[in-house]
Each structure stands twice: as structure tokens, then as C-alpha cells.
Design a binder for these strands. Structure first.
Lengths: 112, 112
DNA sequence: TTTACTTATCGTAAGGTATCGATATATTGA
DNA sequence: TCAATATATCGATACCTTACGATAAGTAAA
């Protein structure tokens, strides 16, 4: 297998994009929020359902959802007393797959 | 194009994996650190070089590098007075590509 | 050995984040 | 209207993170 050489040209960075990306990653970087993302990538859930699954009080789940909605991850709609959340950011699935791929039990040392 | 239905089965979560993933994402979630990751995915740089590119003092760059090294992102080796860092985590490239893909100027509304 | 260069570490202050309990708002049904 | 359910918001607190300046440590050259 041939060794791939890295380019020596320095990639140009976009500070505004890095700032926005950092914001979104920070929002993703919480165990409960990761679980909520995983759940909502597979279906549609109300606040109380998510809270129960994550074993946190309803108001805490609600707060996590608010943060993620602010980043555009989710949208919500009320149905009767309940408010259902679902994914609104198309790239979430790809990013979550990368993360799950990395943190599978056997995911280390795929290459050099 | 057929509409893909979401599975209704609830994915089972691994709390320990979510905790570890959240740690690593938090470490990634900083504008300067994202830039450093981008640079090191394209080459090998010393602390002072990274500090200059990122427009931060050397000790701040050194601290960011220490945090990321603690997550296993990088390894370092001294050469004379300088310490060079390079990527040690194979999944970094894939994850960074996802992020760059999402935060390109035209990256919104790919589907959904 | 003395000085300069490069990186790492430490203490600290400022600002941000997570969580909790209490309370407010919205909806439904009695 | 009143009570119950479901969600959202607020104030307070504890904790964490970041950046800064000072300083230490490792290396090279004078």
C-alpha cells in the first residue's frame, strides 16, 4: 500500500466559519445532548420522552433542546400538551455517524 | 426519489461512549483548536508556527496542544529547541471533513 | 557559563455552563 | 372556571474554561 504524502501547502482558514463550527460543536459536546441527537435521528420525540430516556428532569431536557434548537439542529411542533422535536439540520446525521464510528469499542487504530 | 422512512426502534445508547465522545468534542470545540487541527491534518508544525498562524501567544497555543494531545489527537517530538506536533488520531480527518462540509458557505439545505 | 530561544507550567481573574427548585405558560378535560 | 398535565423560563449556585503574565525547563550557540 502506497504511503500518502501530505500536501505542504498551508490550508487557508476561515475564522468566522471556525467560530460558528466551534459553537455548534460545543453544543453537541454533552453526553445527554449526544443521546438526544441519536434518538431524534431515529424518530420524533416529545420533551418528556427524551427526559425519561436520558434520566434527567423535564426542565433539564427542555433546556438542552433549546440550546440545540438555537444552533438549528432541531425544530419543534406542539401537539396538544406535548411538544415534539425532530431533526432540522441535514448534516447532523453524517456528523453523528463519524462520532459513532470513532467511539465504537473497536474503533481505534484504523490506520497509521 | 423514494422517501426514506426512519426506523421506529429506539437505538440503544452507551453512556460511557457518549461521555467520552462529549469530552473529545468539547476539546475540538474551540476556534483556535479547530484551526490547529486543520493545519496538522495537512502537515507538521512546531508550537511557535501554530501560535503565529492562529495569532495567539505561544503559551496559549501550547496549552491548546496539551488539551488535544490528552485526547489522543496528536503526538509530539522535540527537534532541537522546537517541538513538532502531528496527528495521531486517524478519525480526526473524517470528522474534520464532516465539519468543513457543514460549514462551507453553501452548505445549507442539502436535503430535508 | 552565560545568553537567547522555544516550549511548558502555574496562579489567578473573568466569563461561561450545568443544574436545581420554583414558577410561569399552554393545553386539555372535569 | 378549576385542576391536571406538559413544557419553558428564571434566579441562584457551583463548577469549568479561557486567557494572561510570570516563571520554569530544555536546548543551542556565543
Amino acid at each position: 500500500m502506497a504511503t500518502k504524502l501530505k500536501s505542504t501547502v498551508k490550508p487557508k482558514g476561515n475564522p468566522a466559519a471556525f467560530a460558528e463550527a466551534a459553537e455548534c460543536l460545543k453544543t453537541l459536546a454533552h453526553p445527554v445532548r449526544l443521546r438526544i441527537v441519536q434518538l431524534l435521528l431515529h424518530g420524533r420525540y416529545a420533551v418528556g420522552e427524551l427526559a425519561e430516556d436520558c434520566d434527567v428532569p423535564d426542565n433539564v431536557a427542555s433546556e438542552h433542546l433549546r440550546l440545540m434548537q438555537r444552533c438549528g439542529f432541531f425544530k419543534s411542533e406542539r401537539e396538544g400538551r406535548r411538544v415534539y422535536y425532530q431533526v432540522a439540520e441535514p448534516h447532523l446525521e453524517e456528523i453523528m455517524k463519524c462520532i459513532e464510528n470513532r467511539f465504537r469499542p473497536d474503533a481505534r487504530r484504523t490506520n497509521g
